Amino acid sequence: MNIRINHFKRALKAKQLQVGLWSGLSNNITVELLANAGFDWLLLDTEHSPNELPMVHSQLQAIAHSTTHPIVRPAWNDTVVIKRLLDVGAQTLLIPFVQDEEEARRAVAATRYPPLGVRGYSAAARASDYGRVKNYPLVCEEELCLLLQVETPHAIGNIEAIAALEGVDGVFIGPGDLAASMGYIGQLGHPEVVAAIESAIKRIVATGKAAGVLTGDEALARRYIAAGATYVAIGSDIGLLARGAEALCGRFKQAA
C-alpha cells in the first residue's frame, strides 16, 4: 500500500491559492459536515479549543474521504505532542508561536525520524495505515507539510531565518497575537497591524516558502491574497454558527 499523497503540500509548491476554514468546535460531526463544503483545507485547532488527541483522531477519520485537507495545530511546539498527532495520521501541522530559528529547528526535528530528527518510531500507527505502508519511515517526509506560525514582531523579524530551514514548507502569520504584541489587542484591522502582515507576507514569499494568514474580514483576506498569501483561512466554524444563529434569531425578534 502506498502512502497518502499530500495534495495540499503540492498545491503550495505550485503557488495555487488554498482557501481554508478554522475549526474550533472540536467535533467530528462538524468536521464531516464542513469537509464537503468546498474548502481546500480545514484547520483542526487544539491550541485555543478543547480538542484532545482522541477527538482529533476521530476528526481526521471524518475528513478522510473528502477533498478537504486537514491541518492540525498542536497546542505548542512540543515534540511529544507532535509525535502523537503524526502517528494518528496528521500530514500537515501548523506549529504556533515559533519565535526564531532554534524553535523552528526544534519543530522540524520533531517531524523527522533519526538521523534527521527525533520523532519516535511506531510500526503500526494509523499514519502508516497500521503497518500496511511498509516503507512509511522512508517516504513519510515527502508527504509531511510543516507550517510555522509567527505571532510577534520578534518572530516576524526572524522570518528569513525561520523560512530558510529545510523541512519548513510555509510560514503562517497569526494576526490576533501579532496585534496584541504590537499594542493593538483585538484590533486586527488596525492600519499598523495590516501593514505589518502585508510586509511579512511579501518577505515570506521572497524566501520561496508559502505564506498564510487567518482573517474573517473578506476585504482583508483579498488584500492578503493580493500581497501573495497562498493559504488563507477566511473564517471559522464558531463564527459561522454564532453569527448565523444571532442573525436568524434577530430577524424574528425584530419582526416581533
Score class of each variant (00 low, 15 high):
residue 2 N to I: 03
residue 3 I to K: 12
residue 3 I to M: 14
residue 7 H to N: 10
residue 9 K to W: 03
residue 14 A to R: 10
residue 19 V to D: 06
residue 19 V to H: 10
residue 20 G to H: 13
residue 21 L to N: 10
residue 23 S to A: 11
residue 26 S to P: 00
residue 26 S to L: 02
residue 28 N to Q: 07
residue 28 N to Y: 08
residue 32 E to K: 11
residue 38 G to W: 09
residue 42 L to E: 06
residue 42 L to M: 13
residue 43 L to D: 06
residue 43 L to V: 11
residue 46 T to M: 15
residue 48 H to A: 01
residue 48 H to G: 00
residue 52 E to I: 05
residue 53 L to S: 00
residue 55 M to V: 11
residue 55 M to I: 09
residue 58 S to D: 02
residue 58 S to E: 02
residue 59 Q to H: 02
residue 61 Q to A: 03
residue 61 Q to W: 02
residue 61 Q to S: 03
residue 63 I to M: 03
residue 64 A to S: 15
residue 64 A to C: 05
residue 71 I to C: 05
residue 72 V to Y: 09
residue 73 R to L: 05
residue 75 A to D: 01
residue 76 W to Q: 11
residue 78 D to L: 05
residue 82 I to C: 09
residue 84 R to E: 05
residue 85 L to V: 07
residue 86 L to D: 08
residue 92 T to V: 03
residue 96 P to K: 15
residue 97 F to G: 03
residue 99 Q to L: 14
residue 100 D to M: 13
residue 102 E to V: 13
residue 103 E to L: 11
residue 105 R to F: 06
residue 106 R to V: 03
residue 109 A to I: 04
residue 109 A to V: 02
residue 111 T to Y: 12
residue 112 R to P: 04
residue 116 L to M: 13
residue 119 R to Y: 14
residue 122 S to W: 04
residue 123 A to L: 07
residue 125 A to Y: 05
residue 129 D to S: 07
residue 130 Y to M: 01
residue 130 Y to P: 12
residue 131 G to V: 01
residue 131 G to S: 04
residue 133 V to C: 12
residue 134 K to D: 04
residue 137 P to Q: 08
residue 140 C to Q: 15
residue 149 Q to E: 14
residue 149 Q to H: 13
residue 151 E to I: 09
residue 151 E to K: 07
residue 152 T to S: 15
residue 153 P to Y: 11
residue 154 H to R: 14
residue 156 I to F: 05
residue 157 G to K: 07
residue 162 I to R: 08
residue 166 E to H: 10
residue 166 E to A: 12
residue 167 G to C: 02
residue 170 G to A: 01
residue 170 G to K: 02
residue 170 G to Y: 02
residue 170 G to N: 00
residue 170 G to R: 03
residue 173 I to T: 14
residue 175 P to A: 11
residue 177 D to C: 05
residue 177 D to K: 09
residue 177 D to A: 09
residue 181 S to Y: 11
residue 182 M to I: 08
residue 185 I to S: 08
residue 185 I to F: 11
residue 188 L to E: 08
residue 190 H to G: 07
residue 193 V to T: 10
residue 195 A to T: 15
residue 195 A to H: 15
residue 197 I to A: 09
residue 197 I to E: 10
residue 205 V to A: 03
residue 211 A to D: 04
residue 211 A to Q: 05
residue 211 A to S: 06
residue 212 G to H: 12
residue 214 L to V: 14
residue 218 E to M: 05
residue 220 L to T: 02
residue 222 R to H: 08
residue 222 R to P: 00
residue 223 R to V: 01
residue 226 A to E: 10
residue 227 A to W: 12
residue 227 A to Q: 09
residue 228 G to N: 04
residue 228 G to D: 03
residue 232 V to E: 08
residue 234 I to C: 11
residue 237 D to I: 08
residue 239 G to T: 11
residue 240 L to D: 04
residue 242 A to D: 07
residue 242 A to G: 02
residue 250 G to Y: 04
residue 253 K to A: 06
residue 255 A to W: 05
